[in-house]
Structures are given as C-alpha cells and as structure tokens.
C-alpha cells in the first residue's frame, strides 16, 4: 500500500474514530460515575455521537442538503446527500429526549424515596433493607434457616 492511499484511508476514517472516541467518553461516564444525573448526561453524549456516526454515513462529497428547489426543477448536476439517515435520526432525537425525560423523572422519584442520587449510597441503603429483611425472616422462622 503506497503512502497516498494510506493517507486517503486515514482522512476518510479519522472522523469515524473521533466519533468513537466521543462515544467511549459517554460510555465511560455511564459506567464510572455514580451520580445518576451524570449518567443520563453521559447517555446523551453517547447517543449524540452515534447520531454523528450515522449521519456521516449519509454524507456525499460535494453534496448538498436533500431539499429540492420549490418549483421542483432539479438540476441533474447537483448532488444530494442521502436523506434516509436524516429521517431515522430525526425521529431518534425526539424519542431520545422523551426517554431522557422519563429517566430524569425516575431520578426525581428515587431521590424522594432514598434521599440520594448517588449509586453508592443507594446500594448501601438497599443492602441495609435486605439485611433487615433477612433478620426478620430468621426471627420469624425461629433461627432454623
């Protein structure tokens, strides 16, 4: 492979790699951070970078936005980008905000029940509840279990 094709390959793919780096940033936030609001923001970043990857597939060199002139006299020389990814992502964004709202609503409820939105705290509280229940069960069965 001579150097000019390697360079072409690099230029053609470097944006995909940037999107993947962004995606992984989002994934890291979701996995490593304990705060639920932050996790939702991380999910949003992940989502947006997936959208970028998807839209970049529909891009055509020298193309323009897929909107015709109003009189529908189409110049055959004009290249239009692929409209299909745009449609899919358009709906995905709105569904994404709706699910984000649902997630945030869940966080508000969690805060009201547990008094915290940190994963560590909630795990502790849940373990406490489980221990209490075990205790009660053991007492009820007369220490036979």
């Amino acid at each position: 492979m001579d150097s000019s094709t390697t360079w072409e390959f690099f230029v053609g793919h470097v944006s995909y790699w940037l999107f993947i780096v962004l995606m992984m940033t989002g994934l890291y936030i979701v996995v490593a951070k304990g705060n639920f609001v932050k996790k939702i923001v991380g999910l949003n970043i992940f989502q947006t970078s997936v959208f970028m990857l998807y839209i970049s597939i529909g891009k055509v060199d020298g193309g323009t936005a897929p909107i015709y002139p109003v009189d529908l006299n189409i110049d055959p020389d004009v290249v239009y980008s692929n409209p299909l990814p745009h449609v899919l992502i358009l709906t995905a964004i709105v569904v994404g905000i709706a699910t984000t709202a649902l997630g945030l609503a869940l966080i508000v409820r969690i805060r009201e029940e547990f008094g915290s939105i940190e994963e560590d705290d909630i795990v502790e509280i849940e373990q406490g509840i489980a221990r209490d229940e075990n205790e009660r069960y053991r007492n009820a069965t007369g220490n036979r279990a």
Binding site: A65, I67, V70, L90, I93, V94, I97
Partner: peptide, 12 residues
Amino acid sequence: DFSPGGGFQAGV
C-alpha cells in the same frame, strides 16, 4: 415540506 422543519421541530 419546503424547508427544513416539520412536526417534531415545530412541536419542540
């Protein structure tokens, strides 16, 4: 139908 936009954006 003529320019960018539609129900989703208008709703938001």
